[in-house]
Computed example of a mutant assay.
Amino acid sequence: MSSPAGFQAAKPVLAIEGLTVSFDGFKAVNDLNLYVDRNEVHVVIGPNGAGKTTVLDLICGKTKSTTGSIEFDGRELTKMREYDIVRAGVGRKFQNPSIYENLTVFENLEMSYPKGRKVFGALFFKRTAEVVARVEEVAGEIFLSELLDKQADLLSHGQKQWLEIGMLLMQDPALLMLDEPVAGMSVSERVQTAELLNRISKGRSVLVIEHDMEFVKSIAHRVTVLHQGKVLAEGSMEAVQTNPKVIEVYLGH
């Protein structure tokens, strides 16, 4: 069916097509098609072993695919190195926070400022007004404005998760990928994290892996359910929750 004259459907910022990765003959991801739109919070759910984290590993270049393509903002990621994928605008947070525990909140955010990344950038890095303003802006977004001078190892688990999200925001990625961002958080921290993700998705796409269904309900524009490395179902949270196949293999347990 052709589009009406003058109308063109917006291209997804991330298009995964025919993606497969095999480990010793086991297909962890199997002929996967997945699309993430601009400014969308897209949540991937599914039972353990469904291939969720492997998908993030493939997107960020940590794992190389056997077949298929991953196109991000018009660039093919499967042939790119991990640091080039980061520079292209893909930021990833792993399950456990990886922050510099012996540095302050301010210093952690400052270290993540793009100009501080390369060797020469780090050697000649100056704490300019621009850097300070960016650190303060991001600290406000992640609820840590009052804790800029606090050493990172003294933060609560939830605050450490927020700090790592902030370190990614310093680089202003077009696609932010979060692996179980609310695991181990208190109820109030989960509510604040939902508020944070809803806010930062205005202007970027967010791809989240999560098990907490209440949290998913509060953030997801679209939900994809993976099972055995394939898409089992996709749609709104309401549609997915009432899907008999999803109830059988995932939500019923």
Rank of each mutant, 00 (worst) to 15 (best):
Q95N: 00
N96Y: 11
S98N: 15
S98M: 15
I99S: 03
I99M: 01
I99A: 10
N102Y: 06
L103K: 12
L103A: 09
V105G: 00
V105C: 05
F106M: 14
E107R: 13
E110G: 07
Y113M: 06
P114Y: 12
P114M: 07
K115H: 14
K115F: 14
G116N: 13
V119D: 10
G121R: 04
G121N: 03
G121C: 06
L123H: 01
L123T: 08
F124L: 15
F125S: 12
F125Q: 12
K126F: 05
K126A: 14
R127Y: 11
T128S: 15
A129G: 08
A129W: 02
E130P: 13
A133C: 12
R134Y: 10
V135I: 14
V135S: 08
E137I: 13
E137A: 14
V138S: 04
A139K: 04
A139S: 13
A139T: 12
E141Y: 12
E141M: 15
E141L: 15
F143Y: 10
L144R: 10
S145V: 01
L147C: 13
L147Q: 14
K150G: 10
Q151D: 10
D153L: 13
L154N: 15
L154Y: 14
S156H: 12
H157D: 02
Q159F: 02
Q159A: 09
K160Y: 13
L163H: 02
E164P: 01
E164T: 00
I165H: 00
I165D: 07
M167D: 04
M167W: 09
L168Q: 06
L168V: 05
L169G: 08
M170A: 01
Q171L: 07
D172L: 04
P173D: 06
P173S: 11
L175Q: 10
L176R: 02
L176M: 11
M177I: 13
L178C: 07
D179T: 02
P181A: 11
P181C: 06
V182L: 02
A183L: 03
G184Y: 08
G184K: 02
M185V: 11
S186Y: 03
S186K: 04
V187P: 05
S188V: 15
E189V: 01
V191G: 06
Q192G: 08
T193Q: 02
A194L: 06
A194R: 03
A194N: 03
E195V: 00
L196S: 11
L196V: 04
L196N: 05
L197M: 07
N198A: 01
R199C: 02
R199S: 03
R204H: 07
R204P: 05
S205L: 09
S205G: 12
L207D: 05
V208W: 03
M213V: 10
F215L: 01
V216G: 00
V216M: 04
K217I: 00
K217T: 14
S218N: 07
R222F: 10
V223W: 01
V225S: 07
G229K: 00
G229Y: 07
K230L: 10
K230I: 09
V231Q: 09
L232H: 04
A233W: 07
A233R: 03
E234Y: 11
E234P: 00
